[in-house]
Every structure is written in C-alpha cells, then in structure tokens.
Design a protein around this nucleic acid. Structure first.
Lengths: 220, 220
DNA sequence: CGCGTGTTTCACAAATTTATCACACAAAGA
DNA sequence: TCTTTGTGTGATAAATTTGTGAAACACGCG
C-alpha cells in the first residue's frame, strides 16, 4: 500500500504502530531519532511520516522542516505534550495531522488512512522482501532503506528476475530477454552482471540463487 | 475566505466557534440540529462543515451522509464521546478530521485551516516541492517565489513529468506523449529540452533525474 | 518579406557502462 | 583424492550514453 516512516524514540511505540501499519499492508521504516528520520526520509521513497515531537538529536518539528526541504511528504505528528502551542505549531509547519499521546493505535491508523486517501498520488507498485524494496516503475531499489544506485543493465537484469521471481532462468533466456535477441555475445557476460548486481544488493545478494549448470533465480 | 457551517445543538459552542471563525475571516452559518444542517448545507454554498455527532432530530453521522449525497464538502466532526468507535466511524463516512470535546477553539480552527488548505491545493492542482510550485491548471511555475518563464515545450515537458512524478519515463515515451505519436524525430531532442528545462528550474534542476540508459524522472 | 522566438539536429567531450578474458575457486562425479 | 566442469571475480579496453554549445530550421507576425 504505502511506505510509512515511523520516527519515535520509544521502541515499543514504534513496535505497536508498526504492527498496525503492517497489518494494513503498509511497509514500515523506523527511526529512533530526528537525525535518523531525516536521513531515512531523504534516502527512501516514503509516502507518509509519523513523527514524534520529542526525540533525541533532533526534535520532530525540526526534522519535519528538514525533510520538507526535499520532499513534500505528508506528516502526522505525535506528541506527549498536551499544550495547545505544540498543536498549532505542528500545523504551521505543515503537518497534516496531530495526535497526542497516549493515543490509540487504531485512531492513528484511521488518520493515516485518511491522509493517504487524500494524497491520491499514483502509487507505484513495489515488490518487497525484508529490507529489499524493488520499485520497477520508479526505477528504484532500496536496500535496508538506502537507495541502491545501479547501472542500467543491473536494473534491467534485476527487474527481469523480479518479474520472474521464483522461476529458474537460463543464461540464454536472460541474454535474449534482457540483452535482446540480437546479442551474440558470451554466456559468461551474464555472470559478470550477476556479480555486480549481487554487490549492489549487499546483504540480499543471496536472493539471487545460482542454479548450477542452468542459470539463476530470484528468491523473494 | 470560506463559508463554514457550524452544526451543534449547544448555543455557546456555536458562538465560540463562530467568533474564532469570523476572526479568521470566514463566513459562518449555524444549524442547531441535524435536519437543519442538511437543509442549510444543501441550500448554501458551503466550503466546510463542523458537525457535532450528537444532535437532536438527526445525528451528525447521518447528517453528513445525507449531505454527502449531494455535495462533496469537507467535514470536521465534533464529539463529546471519547470512545474510539466514534472516531473510526467518523473517518469511515469520510470525515476529514475529528475532534473530541472538550476541545480548544484554536485547535479546531487550526484543523479547519489545514482542511481548507488541502482542498485549495487539490482544486488548482499545485504540486509543491520546497520552493518549487507547479500549477498545471494555471500554467505557472514558480521558483522560490519568482515566476519562471518557459517555452511551451518546456511547460508541457514539465507538466508531463509532474503528472508522472516518481515514475521513470523513457525518451520514447516522452516523444510520443509530449511531442505526439506522429513525431519521428531524434531521441536526443528530449535531452536538449531537458537541458533547457533544467536551466529554467534553477536550483531545482536536479528534481529531474537522469536515468542512464533509460530516460528521465521527476522527483518531488 | 525579414525578424525573432522557439525547436530540432548535430558533433564532440566527458563520464559511465559493458563485454571479455584470465584465473581462482567451488562443486560434482569417478 | 583427483579430475572435470561450472561459477565468482578483478582488471581493462571498447562501446554507450549523456550534457552541452552551436548551427540549422520552422513558423507566426508586423
């Protein structure tokens, strides 16, 4: 559905929200302080941010300001404070909603749903496996939240494998499908690109399984 | 600014909200029960409805449903109940926001402001990112407040990319979509226009990302 | 017509990507 | 264990691709 960044220094609050969010089919990223939240928001394609006001290193308001410099992502603020001032300030910096602690997860998710519904932006399909996010339409690949820069061939190879996830593919097949039927080169070229693709996938390098004497397969 | 219909059976609550709303420059209509609220909403040009849940003759939820049959007006629900159920139900019938009593008038007005702001954004379809404002309907582009003058092709190219923000687009696709299917010219024409468009976008030139071996993408 | 703005093509340099090769390494079978 | 076969990897020269400036071209208008 959507990618939600949950920024709160309290571990259990993140856990609760994550549970609810994932139940609704969202992908969740977590940040435990403002700095981390800013970094993650900038590096990832985030659809909504749930941001706590009081956090170490960088408070929620400042974090939102920072994020807004680069991205126009909707924000729901969380705060333990009940003072009115906070609420107004939250709206002033452009927060889309505001909930005070203690809150009910259901209410938060209802508000999240409302915000996402409003932001009817075309949502690109994403294939997710653990910390690996593959966004074919946006030509993005995220490894544990960080954007993985790849060469064109790597993208195409990965996308082809993704579209055929779980299916064994021969080198020949890959050459004709990814490289094109006119390609008359070496089988081993595939190996080299798999090597580079694996390097780009880092911890998820093993998602590309070698099928000895046959070819490769992407396991999601 | 806007016309706000305040529906609440408590006279003093209406009075307080009216005071704040008028202070912000809004025009206020009042209804003391659900039936009246429905009638007024249908007969008048209303920009936003503040609706109490518990009212005589017709409750707030039913009233909203009734109003929504004819008009797609944003609604902020008020309720004395603190039960979660109400809140969720409020969102389910499409309320844009929800505040429980006792509330602070300032908070309510802040939320009203937020809702109206959203609505306005949707009407003119202004896509904003930092100091970059793209008003497709008005055919305007503002860079840090200053209007950016562009050639027709630049506008069209930018608008197409904006409508497909976050999605990778090939040069071919751009040629057929922006230039027209009959165009049989050079791929590289796109490059040149991207170059010029980037120049026009000044500090936001990097919002147009080059996807090597593929095409371009607008990142908001 | 001639002019001016806007559009397209083109060529070249710079930067990036690719294909291939050789060798080390790993797996499977005798 | 030894052999054979297939795969992983680093290096590198060759091939692509893009950014850009300049020139050619198109077109509406006074």
């Amino acid at each position: 559905m959507a990618v939600i960044l949950i920024a709160d220094d309290e571990e259990n609050i993140r856990a609760v929200l994550r549970e609810y969010a994932e139940f609704e089919g969202h992908t969740v990223l977590e940040a435990s302080n403002g700095m981390e939240a800013v970094r993650m928001a900038k590096d990832n394609k985030v659809d909504l941010v749930i941001m706590d006001v009081m956090m170490p290193k960088l408070d929620g308001f400042s974090a939102v300001k920072e994020i807004r410099k680069e991205k126009d992502v909707p924000v729901l603020m969380l705060s333990a404070r009940v003072e009115e001032y906070d609420k107004l300030f939250g709206f002033e910096i452009g927060a889309d909603d505001y909930v005070t602690k203690p809150f009910s997860p259901k209410e938060v998710m209802a508000r999240v749903g409302a915000i996402l519904k409003r932001g009817k932006r075309a949502e690109t399909k994403k294939i997710v496996s653990d910390g690996l996010v593959i966004d074919i339409a946006g030509r993005n690949v995220f490894v544990d939240g960080a954007k993985a820069e790849m060469t064109p061939k790597e993208y195409e190879l990965l996308f082809y494998l993704t579209e055929n996830a779980g299916i064994a593919v021969t080198r020949e097949k890959l050459l004709t499908e990814v490289w094109g039927y006119e390609f008359y080169g070496d089988d081993r070229t595939v190996d080299t690109h798999v090597k580079m693709l694996r390097a780009s996938l880092g911890p998820y390098r093993d998602k590309i399984v070698t099928l000895r004497g046959h070819g490769y397969k992407l396991e999601l």
